[in-house]
């Protein structure tokens, strides 16, 4: 079992020093998790540290691809507005 970083990662370095297994490496454009080292923090912390600090929704996913921080869970922005922003680059308010 291991977590994975997706292409929405902004490379902010927040996760890297927190990993108890030193499984995360900086990369361009996105950071990566070494699946052989990642333990999802079992035995070290209650929750995976990379996902606890990551500011980007859906940047860290589990083995079946489910995000640990789903869209809207960190910012509180309603899903339909996130969708509108992601497709048009803005949100038009009436």
């Amino acid at each position: 079992m291991a977590l994975e970083i997706t292409e929405v990662c902004v490379g902010c370095y927040a996760c890297e020093p927190l990993c108890p297994n030193e499984a995360i490496s900086a990369g361009n454009p996105v950071f990566t998790i070494d699946p052989n080292k990642c333990t999802e923090c079992l035995g070290d912390y209650d929750k995976p540290q990379c996902a606890e600090i990551c500011p980007i929704e859906a940047a860290i996913v589990d083995e079946i691809g489910d995000p640990l921080n789903p869209l809207g869970s960190l910012t509180g922005i309603p899903l339909h507005l996130i969708e509108e922003y992601n497709t048009t680059g803005t949100v038009v308010r009436s």
């Binding site: 509180g76 922005i77 507005l81 996130i82 922003y85 803005t90 949100v91 308010r93």
Partner: peptide
Amino acid sequence: AEHGTYYGIMG
């Protein structure tokens, strides 16, 4: 809104 911040998007 273009900045994609919570405040920007929420008006």
